[in-house]
Design a protein around this nucleic acid. Sequence first.
DNA 1: TTACACTTCTAAAACGATTTTGCAAAATTA
DNA 2: TAATTTTGCAAAATCGTTTTAGAAGTGTAA
Lengths: 338, 338
Amino acid sequence: MKKVSIKDIAQMAGVASSTVSFVLNGKARKMRISETVEKRVLEVARNAGYYPNQLAISLRTGKSKTLGLIVENIGNIFFATLAKTIEEEAEQYGYRVVYCSTENNASKGKELISMLSQRQVDGYLITPAPHMEEDIQQLVQLQRPVVLIDRYLPAVEASHVLVNNTDAVEQGMSHLFSQGYREIGFVTVDLDIMQMEQRLDGYIGALSKEGIRLNKDNILKIPYTHQRDEAVELIATLLENNPHLDALFFATNYLAILGLESINRLKMSIPQDIAVISFDDHDIFRIYPPGITSIQQPVEAIAKKAVALLMDQCENGENKIEKAAVELAAKLIVRGST
Amino acid sequence: MKKVSIKDIAQMAGVASSTVSFVLNGKARKMRISETVEKRVLEVARNAGYYPNQLAISLRTGKSKTLGLIVENIGNIFFATLAKTIEEEAEQYGYRVVYCSTENNASKGKELISMLSQRQVDGYLITPAPHMEEDIQQLVQLQRPVVLIDRYLPAVEASHVLVNNTDAVEQGMSHLFSQGYREIGFVTVDLDIMQMEQRLDGYIGALSKEGIRLNKDNILKIPYTHQRDEAVELIATLLENNPHLDALFFATNYLAILGLESINRLKMSIPQDIAVISFDDHDIFRIYPPGITSIQQPVEAIAKKAVALLMDQCENGENKIEKAAVELAAKLIVRGST
DNA sequence: TTACACTTCTAAAACGATTTTGCAAAATTA
DNA sequence: TAATTTTGCAAAATCGTTTTAGAAGTGTAA
């Protein structure tokens, strides 16, 4: 009923609480505790069903062995996979992860950072929402371990690891070109995120390399605060207004899913009427006939690298931290849609 | 750089730390702190960038204002939605949620409970994996607030809230009957979970009510530890061996998704060759042509009720806790597949 | 003048652990 | 035998809060 503390164990075993602590932490040898006492303490602790109070430990040691992970939306498969992989990776180092979503809302992001700070996380893994620069900069200035994922902020001196977005899009575009598609629409989201700009740059760059003139009408920027149906409508309108389009490039998986609805609604068929390719993979893309070609981010590699960088900062303590900027290559998954 | 504590603020403001605590907790009035002092403390605290150490607060007060949520797999949309809703709901009560997945593995579940206990969560929300009875029973015996979700354990005296599985399946079956389907296969998972048995019961009950003789061959239990491909293969085999089947009822969404692959592989078309209905909704079901009929659990209601019950237990403190058993009704979403 | 009541704040204990320091007894050395 | 070292544990400080008890100082009444 009442939780048992180290003090209770000490009393029951007839020793001081420091002795119990030493034994329970395997420092019996180092602290020259006799085997007799050690055994007795261990025995008492087990019988009493003792388990340590992590709060007290963290308070005393100043290490919570916890990392804070802030993503855009834990509901999206990309972030969910990222979170899961990061969690597994962190576990290797003996750290727990607590995760939360910004929904791309800066003020929510600010709150989350504050909440994580109050909970004394040892380090921060952040996919920054727009306008979170100041808050993150502050963490960096306070010398807190921080690694940005999936995006980076030019204004902030923090380590980051992300996919090479421009290259990835160009890779996808080359594939489309090689399949004979020339009139390619690009659907992205109207968000001021570096990563989205890079993807758009990749699109524009690929066109120019191929000697195709950029047609602004082929680019659709969907407001981030869209309702599902409105977005579907917008994409459908793009297709109707531009019948010359033979392929659509979606900048993220959730846009592509909306796009599939639009295409469905127009009774167009993939890839005969329109080819489709999406950034970020998704379960649906594997199943949805005829299979949707996508650009798969190396989620595992990103997670591993990010955690490694963060651990480095955490363990390195007072030494000045070097900032690392890591870019990884994406992988094209060709399916029936192209 | 160095974190500022309440003691630092006290020193800077020239008052005792207790005074600072009172002011910061809005108890200035109650403790008759003069406005002069109050203002000074507030000012100093703000300038120093003070934020409270949640660990210390929790240690002192004995309340972590944190709930532990253990689900089967946070990657599954059903649990992800559940988790998100629970999080939002708990926030209303001023609680945070830390969540983790069992992967239906009892030993992992045991570890998770232990980890949550060490972190001093105030209450537990658990979707129990098979064989977690003893561990959960222990929590209950220790009078810890516990609410089971989505499933329940007959052997454990704990509050639980879940959908009425039997009714839900019967509802789906009636729909199939009304559409003229008679030869209905049932694909479930070979897991010893109450909830799955109830769904199977619903299937069997519906058949008998309709006066259809139960054909054991129409039931497929897929081993839980299946590889993706093996499961797809098993379902395909079921279809090949039983050409008389005109509809398939999937007991969970991930099984249905596998089933769609099987059906695809056999080049069968939905609903002409085979009708499909699934327990639990999924994004894919809305998109996948011609739309997959599904049984949608009232996730929001479940989350709300579960959190409410748990909060009740948490706040009620020492008073004996009444066990509640809540069953909610599911909703049939009819789409093109039936 | 003493007693009492307010007002305004402080001191100290407590939460549950870790860790440094201290100290008696036993063992070793001189 | 005395001095020194080692052994084996206990005491106490500490982390950052909250909270209870109470200490000064001032005003009021008997």
